[in-house]
Design a binder for these strands. Structure first.
Lengths: 233, 233, 233, 233
DNA sequence: TATGAATGAGCCTTCATTCAT
DNA sequence: TATGAATGAAGGCTCATTCAT
């Protein structure tokens, strides 16, 4: 299968065994190993401009940092005039919020991939957070974006909650089951989630930004085991 | 006794056993509970100007965010003219780097407080990371600063390494001992440290920014236990 | 019967004595009290586009001020695309000039309503300026438009003269007669007209924008008497 | 007496017979004929920058119209950088308001010149409105500014009232006396004032913008007589 | 050292106008 | 004719930095 241009990837329609239709673009790749289903590629002659702009924003923000992510730079990157941005987004803030939503949506899809609520708790845990970790690790772009956007004043609590919502209930159920079955510490969900999230994010960041500091190769399973040991009772 | 930094001179005169001279200023408090020596704080009417400026920068940055931390605002907060800032720092970037160094220095001191290389591994671990966590949790200012500064393009890897250096060896030794004694997982130091650091930072942030999401009170010991369980073999 | 402007055709079908065909549209109403003939208004579902655009321009300009009267807003208000405006008017300036002409044309008609060159001078004066005053007072829209357009750099002296032309001769004759008959001061026509015009415009504006400053009700006859006393010899 | 530069005029200190110290600059001349007092000129080597900016604003606004009065143009005219404007005025609106206040203050001074509350009503009337008319007529700049500023959304009712305040009471008293003595129509003050003001403003404008339309020279006394006849009972 | 007025590049945003469809 | 996406020049404003005092 030839390497697809971002546009093509973006519009790709993946038909998996089940109902899990996922959209991914250069903005947010699902880990490559999970693209093993048959897929029909609709080659569209035009990339949606809105998409192009989001793309460009992501690029500039990743390469130059959110502070130097000027609308003029985004426009240049997107190959259009500055004014054009405002045909698609009312303000810069709006653009940033849209990018965040897009990104989180991709992350959600990635995390939920292969989720099976009836599997063993530990299995579910490894599956979910493994997805999350690979999502962040496999794309420095995604991780950097996520970090910068999350810290931006443009993203308020409401938007954050709203965006995270789809995975929130999954995690809650997982922890609930785990606690009931005696596998997981009887600590607040938020605590357990926050610490797992925090340690994996930090690891992904370190590996991307200072890979040389890890003398030996980092094994994904080791990481997840560390996380699991942290919360298991 | 080594030459003291302006902060130490101006902010505090610690009368205690000579071995426990700690640096703190409004910029970075060590947790209050560890200030159990008698100390006389002399609020000097002319604080060293450089210090005043760092102070002001921290204040503005905390209150308004790093994006709106304009030099003019810093000057105003510091009670001096904008031009004066440039008598002490060549550029804004320089100022930010100095603030980062100052902050990390405080953090280092806080973390090392009461450290005893001969104590039991778990004890050392709890002591060290307990210090760290309290440092971050007790001062939203410190935590917020640390986060914003760490993400700033002004702070490069070299500076980061250099600043962290003082605690690096302590952690390395702690982990080394732990591994040798079979208490700690045989995983790379960086991995163990990064994950502990990441989870505690994230927790401190969550508690400061969205405290309402934790239904019940968070117990510091629970957190440290989670961290310990994560890395213990 | 001369060819009618789109406004006349589309906005109204006046069934009255053939001598009193008046032009009015939402753009410029003649005072209601003078609509004492039976009239059938056919609101046509497809108003002439050019008219629609003028209409929309007037609305936007009145509601938002001439400074925020953007072509895109006009288009939206007119229910068409921005580009369409340029099918009817070469430039924005052109559009503004057309609107001015349209408005002044309405004003002229209003002023001349019921004019009788053979009536007594004072009667003629009251009739004419009464018409004018009611035209301005009864429609904040007309008055506001007139003021804003008159001040616009798009309206040059030539256009102004040209637009006013129809009533110019009427006024000139009225004043000429008045002077000959000894009723009116022997002062330049322009002076007499300008002052009357100025005082009535200013009054209409004040009443529309700061009505509360007039403690008692303003009587139209008082106003016209003031104007008459001003110029009568 | 040599022609003074604006700066010199601005800072001029007029020592008149009485206590009437008036300040005028190019922004707002008092009518020339009233500068017949001895005056001491203090030649200042620097013109106050704030004044310079107001000056420049007035110039640009007069020459190009309020709509094209861009901050960059003002800066250029003032001979400084765009940013400099913001050292003296927080926003463009602020600048416009300051200019308005400055202008109205000059107008007030001009109007009140030689006012004598004990003189005959008609005399007071001629004095006051004569002053006003000359103020407007003698400086197209003042008149144009006044008109444009008065219509600007930056000037709210509060500022207007506040600025006019000094002459308001004088007029009120004049009219009150006039009505009591039976010289003036028993009509609302606002009506009488508005109409007088409106007719004189309009006359000044016409004479400045289309002087050729007045075939013969306009006599100031004629104008004031017209105004007086308008309101006298 | 200290000042703070001045600078001017750069930011976000608006809008009249064009042009391929 | 009609569309509306696209353009890019301006506009208001901010701010790191300089420099004469």
């Amino acid at each position: 299968m030839p390497r697809l241009s971002p546009a093509e990837i973006t519009m790709q329609l993946s038909v998996a065994k089940m109902t899990s239709i996922r959209q991914h673009s250069a903005l947010a790749f699902a880990p490559a190993k999970q693209q093993n289903e048959r897929s029909f590629n609709f080659k569209l002659s035009f990339m949606d401009k809105r998409q192009q702009i989001l793309e460009a924003t992501a690029t500039v923000m990743t390469e130059q940092g959110i502070e130097s992510c000027a609308m003029s730079k985004v426009a240049k990157q997107a190959g259009c005039a500055a004014g054009t941005l405002y045909c698609y987004f009312d303000t810069k803030e709006e653009l940033i919020r849209a990018l965040y939503q897009h990104l989180v949506s991709s992350m959600n899809n990635a995390c939920l991939n292969g989720h099976d609520g009836s599997a063993a708790i530990k299995t579910q845990f490894f599956q979910f957070w493994g997805n999350f970790y690979r999502f962040m690790l496999s794309s420095p772009r995604n991780r950097s974006l996520f970090e910068q956007l999350s810290a931006s004043p443009a993203i308020d609590e409401t938007l954050r909650d709203e965006a995270i919502e789809p995975i929130h209930s999954v995690i809650a159920q997982l922890l609930q089951q785990g606690k009931e079955q005696g596998y997981i510490k009887k600590l607040p969900d938020e605590l357990l989630t926050t610490m797992t999230f925090g340690s994996l994010m930090m690891m992904a960041k370190k590996q991307q930004t200072v890979p040389e500091c890890f003398r030996s190769e980092i094994n994904e399973d080791d990481l997840l085991t560390v996380c699991w040991d942290a919360i298991k009772s």
